[in-house]
Simulated assay, not measured.
Amino acid sequence: MSSFVIKSIGNALNATSLISSKYAVKKAINIFASPRKGRYNDVQKQIIESAFYEEIRYNNMDIATYRWVGKGKTVLLAHGWESNASRWAYILKELKAQDYNIIALDAPAHGRSDGKQFNAILYSEFINVVANKFNPDVLIGHSVGGMASVFYMHKHQLPSIKKLILLGAPAHFTGVFDRYKSMMGFNTKISKGLDNIIIERFGQPVSYFSAANFTESIDAKGLIIHDKKDRIIPYEDGLLIANRYKNSEFISTTGFGHGLKDVSLTPKIIEFIND
Protein backbone atom coordinates (compact mmCIF):
# COMPACT_ATOMS: atom_id res chain seq x y z
CA MET A 1 0.00 0.00 0.00
CA SER A 2 1.12 3.56 -0.67
CA SER A 3 1.93 5.86 2.25
CA PHE A 4 -1.14 7.93 1.35
CA VAL A 5 -3.45 4.91 1.66
CA ILE A 6 -1.75 3.82 4.90
CA LYS A 7 -2.14 7.27 6.45
CA SER A 8 -5.75 7.45 5.24
CA ILE A 9 -6.55 4.19 7.03
CA GLY A 10 -4.79 5.46 10.14
CA ASN A 11 -6.73 8.72 10.07
CA ALA A 12 -10.01 6.86 9.60
CA LEU A 13 -9.31 4.66 12.62
CA ASN A 14 -8.25 7.68 14.67
CA ALA A 15 -11.62 9.26 13.89
CA THR A 16 -13.41 6.01 14.70
CA SER A 17 -11.63 5.83 18.07
CA LEU A 18 -13.46 8.99 19.16
CA ILE A 19 -16.70 7.05 18.87
CA SER A 20 -15.53 3.54 19.78
CA SER A 21 -11.91 3.08 20.80
CA LYS A 22 -12.48 -0.65 21.33
CA TYR A 23 -13.58 -1.14 17.71
CA ALA A 24 -10.74 1.03 16.35
CA VAL A 25 -8.12 -0.84 18.35
CA LYS A 26 -9.49 -4.21 17.22
CA LYS A 27 -9.28 -3.10 13.59
CA ALA A 28 -5.76 -1.76 14.16
CA ILE A 29 -4.44 -5.04 15.62
CA ASN A 30 -6.13 -7.02 12.84
CA ILE A 31 -4.38 -4.91 10.21
CA PHE A 32 -1.05 -5.42 12.00
CA ALA A 33 -1.47 -9.20 12.22
CA SER A 34 -2.91 -9.86 8.75
CA PRO A 35 -0.33 -10.48 6.00
CA ARG A 36 -1.33 -9.06 2.60
CA LYS A 37 0.90 -11.52 0.78
CA GLY A 38 2.92 -14.64 1.49
CA ARG A 39 0.81 -17.28 -0.22
CA TYR A 40 2.52 -19.04 -3.12
CA ASN A 41 2.38 -17.69 -6.64
CA ASP A 42 3.06 -19.93 -9.64
CA VAL A 43 6.79 -19.17 -9.77
CA GLN A 44 7.26 -19.80 -6.05
CA LYS A 45 5.41 -23.12 -6.28
CA GLN A 46 8.04 -24.38 -8.71
CA ILE A 47 10.76 -23.79 -6.11
CA ILE A 48 9.23 -26.08 -3.51
CA GLU A 49 7.96 -28.75 -5.92
CA SER A 50 11.18 -30.76 -5.51
CA ALA A 51 10.70 -31.04 -1.74
CA PHE A 52 8.95 -33.78 0.20
CA TYR A 53 5.81 -32.04 1.47
CA GLU A 54 4.28 -32.85 4.85
CA GLU A 55 1.70 -31.16 7.07
CA ILE A 56 2.07 -31.25 10.84
CA ARG A 57 -0.86 -30.51 13.13
CA TYR A 58 -0.80 -27.87 15.89
CA ASN A 59 -3.91 -26.64 17.73
CA ASN A 60 -6.23 -27.51 14.83
CA MET A 61 -3.90 -25.83 12.34
CA ASP A 62 -1.78 -27.47 9.66
CA ILE A 63 1.87 -26.43 9.46
CA ALA A 64 3.29 -26.80 5.96
CA THR A 65 6.80 -28.29 5.86
CA TYR A 66 9.18 -28.99 3.00
CA ARG A 67 12.10 -31.43 3.18
CA TRP A 68 15.05 -31.90 0.90
CA VAL A 69 16.57 -35.10 2.27
CA GLY A 70 20.30 -35.29 2.97
CA LYS A 71 22.63 -37.35 5.14
CA GLY A 72 24.39 -34.44 6.80
CA LYS A 73 23.33 -31.97 9.46
CA THR A 74 19.65 -31.10 9.68
CA VAL A 75 18.99 -27.43 8.98
CA LEU A 76 15.63 -25.81 9.74
CA LEU A 77 14.70 -22.65 7.81
CA ALA A 78 12.18 -20.06 9.09
CA HIS A 79 11.19 -17.27 6.65
CA GLY A 80 9.99 -13.79 7.50
CA TRP A 81 6.86 -11.64 7.22
CA GLU A 82 4.78 -11.85 4.03
CA SER A 83 7.07 -14.52 2.62
CA ASN A 84 7.16 -18.32 2.48
CA ALA A 85 9.61 -21.22 2.19
CA SER A 86 10.42 -20.30 -1.41
CA ARG A 87 12.49 -17.35 -0.16
CA TRP A 88 15.33 -19.81 0.50
CA ALA A 89 15.73 -20.59 -3.22
CA TYR A 90 18.88 -18.44 -3.38
CA ILE A 91 20.74 -20.71 -0.95
CA LEU A 92 19.16 -24.13 -1.48
CA LYS A 93 21.63 -25.33 -4.11
CA GLU A 94 24.60 -24.67 -1.84
CA LEU A 95 22.92 -26.28 1.17
CA LYS A 96 22.09 -29.35 -0.90
CA ALA A 97 25.70 -29.53 -2.07
CA GLN A 98 26.69 -29.96 1.59
CA ASP A 99 24.26 -32.91 1.77
CA TYR A 100 22.37 -31.22 4.60
CA ASN A 101 18.96 -32.56 5.55
CA ILE A 102 17.00 -29.36 4.83
CA ILE A 103 13.64 -28.55 6.41
CA ALA A 104 11.63 -25.38 5.72
CA LEU A 105 8.27 -24.39 7.14
CA ASP A 106 5.61 -21.83 6.30
CA ALA A 107 4.64 -19.43 9.07
CA PRO A 108 1.05 -19.04 10.32
CA ALA A 109 -1.13 -17.44 7.60
CA HIS A 110 1.72 -17.79 5.10
CA GLY A 111 2.43 -20.20 2.26
CA ARG A 112 0.38 -23.37 2.70
CA SER A 113 0.13 -23.18 6.48
CA ASP A 114 -3.24 -22.56 8.13
CA GLY A 115 -4.33 -19.35 9.78
CA LYS A 116 -5.55 -15.90 8.84
CA GLN A 117 -3.43 -13.92 11.28
CA PHE A 118 0.21 -13.97 12.30
CA ASN A 119 2.23 -13.26 15.42
CA ALA A 120 5.78 -14.21 16.34
CA ILE A 121 4.70 -16.12 19.46
CA LEU A 122 2.43 -18.42 17.46
CA TYR A 123 5.20 -18.77 14.88
CA SER A 124 7.60 -19.84 17.63
CA GLU A 125 5.19 -22.63 18.56
CA PHE A 126 5.03 -23.70 14.90
CA ILE A 127 8.83 -23.87 14.95
CA ASN A 128 8.71 -25.90 18.16
CA VAL A 129 6.40 -28.52 16.66
CA VAL A 130 8.55 -28.84 13.53
CA ALA A 131 11.81 -28.91 15.50
CA ASN A 132 10.53 -31.65 17.80
CA LYS A 133 9.72 -33.80 14.77
CA PHE A 134 12.97 -33.30 12.85
CA ASN A 135 15.53 -32.50 15.61
CA PRO A 136 17.53 -29.90 13.66
CA ASP A 137 21.19 -29.21 14.36
CA VAL A 138 20.91 -25.69 12.95
CA LEU A 139 18.09 -23.13 12.93
CA ILE A 140 18.16 -20.23 10.46
CA GLY A 141 15.61 -17.43 10.71
CA HIS A 142 15.13 -14.37 8.52
CA SER A 143 13.57 -11.16 9.86
CA VAL A 144 10.58 -11.95 12.11
CA GLY A 145 11.40 -15.62 11.47
CA GLY A 146 14.62 -14.87 13.34
CA MET A 147 12.69 -13.24 16.17
CA ALA A 148 10.33 -16.23 16.36
CA SER A 149 13.35 -18.55 16.36
CA VAL A 150 14.78 -16.72 19.38
CA PHE A 151 11.40 -16.83 21.14
CA TYR A 152 11.32 -20.58 20.49
CA MET A 153 14.90 -21.17 21.69
CA HIS A 154 14.32 -19.10 24.81
CA LYS A 155 11.24 -21.10 25.79
CA HIS A 156 12.06 -24.62 24.65
CA GLN A 157 15.88 -25.02 24.33
CA LEU A 158 15.92 -28.17 22.19
CA PRO A 159 19.31 -29.85 22.92
CA SER A 160 19.87 -30.92 19.30
CA ILE A 161 20.18 -27.30 18.09
CA LYS A 162 23.82 -26.28 18.30
CA LYS A 163 23.77 -23.30 15.92
CA LEU A 164 21.37 -20.37 15.48
CA ILE A 165 21.67 -18.00 12.51
CA LEU A 166 19.72 -14.72 12.52
CA LEU A 167 19.39 -12.76 9.28
CA GLY A 168 18.09 -9.20 9.61
CA ALA A 169 16.19 -10.07 12.78
CA PRO A 170 14.39 -7.50 14.98
CA ALA A 171 15.91 -7.03 18.42
CA HIS A 172 12.62 -6.36 20.18
CA PHE A 173 8.90 -6.30 19.57
CA THR A 174 8.69 -2.74 20.92
CA GLY A 175 10.53 -1.43 17.86
CA VAL A 176 8.35 -3.40 15.45
CA PHE A 177 5.16 -2.21 17.15
CA ASP A 178 6.29 1.42 17.41
CA ARG A 179 7.20 1.51 13.71
CA TYR A 180 3.73 0.20 12.86
CA LYS A 181 2.03 2.83 15.04
CA SER A 182 4.16 5.59 13.51
CA MET A 183 3.59 4.37 9.95
CA MET A 184 -0.20 4.40 10.48
CA GLY A 185 -0.14 7.69 12.39
CA PHE A 186 -2.25 6.32 15.24
CA ASN A 187 -3.34 8.60 18.06
CA THR A 188 -2.57 7.97 21.73
CA LYS A 189 -5.90 6.24 22.35
CA ILE A 190 -5.24 3.56 19.73
CA SER A 191 -1.56 3.23 20.61
CA LYS A 192 -2.32 2.57 24.28
CA GLY A 193 -5.15 0.23 23.29
CA LEU A 194 -2.74 -1.82 21.16
CA ASP A 195 -0.33 -2.12 24.09
CA ASN A 196 -3.17 -3.32 26.31
CA ILE A 197 -4.20 -5.97 23.79
CA ILE A 198 -0.71 -7.51 23.96
CA ILE A 199 -0.99 -7.78 27.74
CA GLU A 200 -4.49 -9.27 27.51
CA ARG A 201 -3.54 -11.86 24.88
CA PHE A 202 -0.05 -12.82 25.97
CA GLY A 203 0.16 -11.92 29.65
CA GLN A 204 3.16 -9.62 29.28
CA PRO A 205 3.77 -6.02 28.15
CA VAL A 206 5.22 -5.28 24.71
CA SER A 207 8.64 -4.58 26.23
CA TYR A 208 8.90 -8.16 27.58
CA PHE A 209 9.17 -9.67 24.09
CA SER A 210 12.78 -8.78 23.43
CA ALA A 211 14.74 -11.14 21.19
CA ALA A 212 17.94 -9.40 22.26
CA ASN A 213 17.25 -10.08 25.95
CA PHE A 214 16.07 -13.64 25.28
CA THR A 215 19.37 -14.55 23.58
CA GLU A 216 21.04 -14.32 26.97
CA SER A 217 19.43 -17.65 27.88
CA ILE A 218 20.43 -19.44 24.64
CA ASP A 219 23.33 -21.90 24.74
CA ALA A 220 23.54 -22.54 20.98
CA LYS A 221 26.28 -20.67 19.16
CA GLY A 222 24.91 -17.73 17.19
CA LEU A 223 25.68 -16.00 13.91
CA ILE A 224 24.02 -12.61 13.42
CA ILE A 225 24.04 -10.96 9.99
CA HIS A 226 22.61 -7.49 9.46
CA ASP A 227 22.94 -4.89 6.71
CA LYS A 228 23.78 -1.27 7.44
CA LYS A 229 21.22 -0.15 4.85
CA ASP A 230 18.38 -2.39 6.02
CA ARG A 231 15.24 -0.26 5.55
CA ILE A 232 12.92 -2.67 7.34
CA ILE A 233 14.75 -3.61 10.54
CA PRO A 234 17.31 -1.02 11.69
CA TYR A 235 20.99 -1.98 11.72
CA GLU A 236 21.04 -1.06 15.40
CA ASP A 237 18.82 -4.08 16.10
CA GLY A 238 21.53 -6.40 14.83
CA LEU A 239 24.13 -4.67 16.97
CA LEU A 240 21.92 -4.93 20.05
CA ILE A 241 21.33 -8.66 19.53
CA ALA A 242 25.07 -9.22 19.06
CA ASN A 243 25.78 -7.28 22.24
CA ARG A 244 23.37 -9.37 24.34
CA TYR A 245 24.03 -12.73 22.65
CA LYS A 246 27.36 -13.56 24.24
CA ASN A 247 28.00 -16.84 22.42
CA SER A 248 27.71 -15.28 18.96
CA GLU A 249 29.56 -13.59 16.13
CA PHE A 250 28.37 -10.66 14.07
CA ILE A 251 28.70 -10.03 10.34
CA SER A 252 27.98 -6.51 9.11
CA THR A 253 27.12 -6.00 5.44
CA THR A 254 26.50 -2.94 3.27
CA GLY A 255 24.13 -2.86 0.32
CA PHE A 256 22.48 -6.28 0.66
CA GLY A 257 19.33 -4.79 2.18
CA HIS A 258 16.87 -6.56 4.42
CA GLY A 259 16.72 -9.71 2.29
CA LEU A 260 20.47 -10.47 2.61
CA LYS A 261 20.20 -12.69 -0.47
CA ASP A 262 23.78 -12.30 -1.62
CA VAL A 263 25.88 -15.28 -2.69
CA SER A 264 28.93 -13.87 -0.91
CA LEU A 265 27.27 -14.64 2.43
CA THR A 266 26.56 -18.30 1.65
CA PRO A 267 30.14 -19.60 2.20
CA LYS A 268 30.25 -17.78 5.54
CA ILE A 269 26.98 -19.39 6.62
CA ILE A 270 28.16 -22.84 5.55
CA GLU A 271 31.51 -22.34 7.27
CA PHE A 272 29.69 -21.41 10.47
CA ILE A 273 27.45 -24.48 10.23
CA ASN A 274 30.36 -26.83 9.59
CA ASP A 275 32.71 -25.36 12.19
Rank of each mutant, 00 (worst) to 15 (best):
Y58V: 11
L95V: 06
H226P: 10
D262C: 00
F134Q: 10
K162D: 05
G255T: 10
F209H: 08
N119D: 02
L122V: 14
T215Q: 01
W81A: 00
S264W: 12
F151Q: 06
I241N: 00
N119W: 08
V206I: 15
K181M: 06
K162Y: 01
G203P: 11
S191H: 05
S20N: 02
A85V: 08
W81T: 04
K192P: 10
D227E: 13
I63T: 05
R201C: 15
N135G: 14
K228H: 02
I199F: 11
S124H: 05
A131K: 02
F4C: 08
K162C: 00
S21I: 03
L239H: 07
E94W: 03
I48G: 15
G38Q: 12
G111Q: 05
D219R: 13
F250Q: 01
S160T: 00
F173N: 15
R39V: 12
G38F: 10
T253G: 09
F177W: 03
N11L: 14
S20T: 03
V130Y: 01
A24F: 01
S34R: 13
T188G: 14
I233L: 03
T188E: 15
L92R: 08
A12Q: 12
A28W: 03
A28S: 04
H172A: 15
A109Y: 03
Y152T: 04
E94H: 00
Y90V: 02
Q44K: 06
N132D: 04
H154I: 03
E55K: 07
Y58T: 13
T253Y: 07
S124Q: 01
N59V: 08
F151N: 04
H79N: 12
Y235S: 05
K189N: 04
A104H: 04
D275A: 12
N14D: 09
S264H: 14
K246I: 08
D227G: 15
A15C: 14
V69G: 01
G255C: 10
W68L: 01
A220H: 09
G255H: 11
E94F: 00
L166P: 09
